[in-house]
Design a protein around this nucleic acid. Structure first.
Lengths: 189, 189
DNA sequence: ACAGCCATGTAACTCGTTACATGATTAC
DNA sequence: GTAATCATGTAACGAGTTACATGGCTGT
């Protein structure tokens, strides 16, 4: 034991449990494709520094150091570390940083049409993100059947899609609520 | 102009737009009560250092400096800064750090019952958080009618409650999916 | 030849946290 | 009296970002 790494380290370590061997660059791409929806996509430079730390602690093994590209794979020690982290530590609660909700909270500072425009832009962004996640989900077809070893990413992607759908629904209804108020106020004026 | 503060600074500044005057301690409590659901609750020490910076830039005014407790209120300049931030800058997309989704993604590393137990604990945590938000929502009764000046916090709280409800629903269904797979596997063995 | 992607890192910096330190006021 | 809450800060640190720097390889 005796390791306590930030969650992002374990997340990157976890991306190396899918049976393949990646360069730092490829690991970053994998993080961009899937991790970013539920966690964060670390900067390129952080991927390399995390890999250096994981290597130092013997949790990953390198191949081809010195040449143009180095690949990384999970070590037995790394697998044990990941497993004991998953079994033995409390995940903690999720943290949401939602700039649109924050600005809606402060809606009295600006006029209603400005707030409505912001929410409409958010719906558009939501659609774009959803579409990106759909692409990821498509890429998992075949590996996602019950009993398949790597079926979990498919489950999480479905979770994410459901989240997007629900958020779209509620934001749309908030827009309507604000629209009705607008009409009311115009009636008063 | 020439100010570019982190979002958290504007968030704290925004909490001072509700017509009252607060101590750092009270501001922290307000952040704990509402901001934490959509953004973050900064540490006590950060609240004080942010207030110091906002004061330095003239965005908030202090009363009673030197005595045991100092209160802070929004300045005209602070209001303009907040407004131009809300109108003129892109909110950006929300960031979700979801340790439970992350661990579900890596479900192949542990056994299914462990994953199910984690999801069940998450449902319990969700219920507790929801209940805390219900309390906040109750405190907003009266200020939340259409046309009321400070009705937006009520809208955001409703959004948050809907989010919790939806997440509970999907996590529960994920638990069922995993349960069914478990039974299937036992049948095979 | 040139653009774009693959690949790897360093340096400086900011945000935000935890730990520490202090003391007044209030409730029991 | 003593525990909890109110109130304010400092110091050290870690996580993560942006900007910078470098160079090979690939397609057109």
């Amino acid at each position: 034991m005796g390791q306590d790494l930030p969650v992002t380290s374990y997340a990157l370590l976890g991306l190396l449990t899918f049976g393949d061997e990646l360069t730092g660059y490829e690991l970053k791409q994998r993080a961009d494709a899937t991790l970013r929806f539920y966690w964060v996509s670390p900067a390129m430079s952080q991927v390399y520094s995390e890999l250096a730390r994981l290597t130092e602690r013997g949790l990953v093994l390198t191949r081809g150091g010195g040449e143009r590209s180095t690949t990384y794979r999970l070590s037995a020690k790394g697998r044990r570390a990941l497993e004991s982290w998953m079994r033995g530590t409390d995940p903690g609660f999720s943290v949401l940083k939602h700039p649109v909700a924050l600005r809606l909270l402060l809606g009295h500072v600006v006029d209603t049409p400005t707030t409505i425009a912001m929410l409409e832009a958010h719906v558009a962004a939501l659609d774009a993100e959803r579409e990106a996640l759909v692409q990821v989900r498509e890429g998992l077809r075949g590996a996602d059947a019950p009993g398949q070893r790597f079926r979990h990413p498919g489950l999480v992607a479905d979770w994410g899609l459901d989240y997007f759908d629900n958020e779209r629904r509620i934001v749309t209804s908030l827009i309507e609520r604000l629209h009705e108020e607008e009409l009311q106020e115009e009636g008063d004026a």
